[in-house]
Design a protein around this nucleic acid. Structure first.
Ligand SMILES: [Mn+2]
Ligand SMILES: [Mn+2]
Ligand SMILES: [Zn+2]
Ligand SMILES: [Zn+2]
Lengths: 136, 136
DNA sequence: TTATTATGTTATAATCATTCTAAATTAGAA
DNA sequence: TTCTAATTTAGAATGATTATAACATAATAA
């Protein structure tokens, strides 16, 4: 009953499997990552259900949808406000938990009402740096 | 001859039309925005050429590709380092020219070699704020 | 200037992520 | 247990982007 109180949605086996996969997941998986992982354990799972569930979870603010990757949406179950560090070679995404005080002046605001911000740091992850060295 | 020196690529009428459209364009257009605008003047223009040209321009660092919009890539001919202010309702993108000193500590860096950063500010643009009010 | 050719353009097909549809199933309320 | 609105499913549809291969041409050099 506690899960139902938390999520405010019908708890189907499919949804529980997706939630279990997302719980504490720091990899920022895409819909197909989730489908691949979850359908191994639950082969009845449909791709549409992954999309439907992610859409419902996003609507209820249980996951954040990231547009970091222009190929596909990626999803983040970590709801604490935070930023990201992105490897330009392998597209790995790592959390940056720091509160940057980023305020715009009125003239920079252009009449917008600002509700939030997000910083992307770009670079090369340690794994890809190692890979580079071995190719020289 | 000066254009050729600037761009280091064959200058075809199609490319010149695209470059002319992008010159000073602050709207951060998508490939289809560009195709629509340019093919009005140059109806022989193919969609593939828009993609090919954008790819070439990106490779030569004459445009930046933005992944702000998860539906489609958007392109920015403004090469000065800057950040963006995004309307969550109409997806308008406005430039923010300010240099934020955003440095990560070693422990936040996770072994990454950091090459840059980009801040997205989210909010509602003045046009959409007006639209909201009239719907109340 | 003209011929040559590497490069660019085009229509079209292919691909990939995502959304839609409509029929079958089911979680949770009564 | 029964009932029903919500969910799942396979598959089709859509939309952005990329690939293909025949045709055209900008830029180079003779
Ligand atoms: Mn995260
Ligand atoms: Mn810009
Ligand atoms: Zn990497
Ligand atoms: Zn707006």
């Amino acid at each position: 009953m506690t899960l139902k109180k938390t999520y405010h949605m019908k708890l189907t086996p499919q949804r529980l499997a997706i939630l279990e996969y997302l719980e504490g997941n720091k990899a920022h998986p895409s819909a197909s990552d989730i489908y691949k992982a979850v359908s191994e354990k639950y082969p009845m799972m449909s791709f549409a259900t992954v999309y439907n569930t992610l859409d419902t979870l996003r609507g209820k603010k249980h996951v954040r949808e990231l547009s970091i990757d222009s190929q596909k949406k990626r999803f983040d179950p970590n709801l604490k406000p935070h930023h990201h560090l992105i490897c330009l070679e392998c597209r790995a995404i790592t959390d940056v938990h720091r509160n940057f005080a980023l305020d715009l002046t009125d003239s920079e605001r252009f009449g917008y009402e600002i509700t939030g911000n997000h910083v992307d740091f770009y670079g090369v992850c340690p794994k890809c740096k190692r890979g580079r060295r071995s190719k020289i």
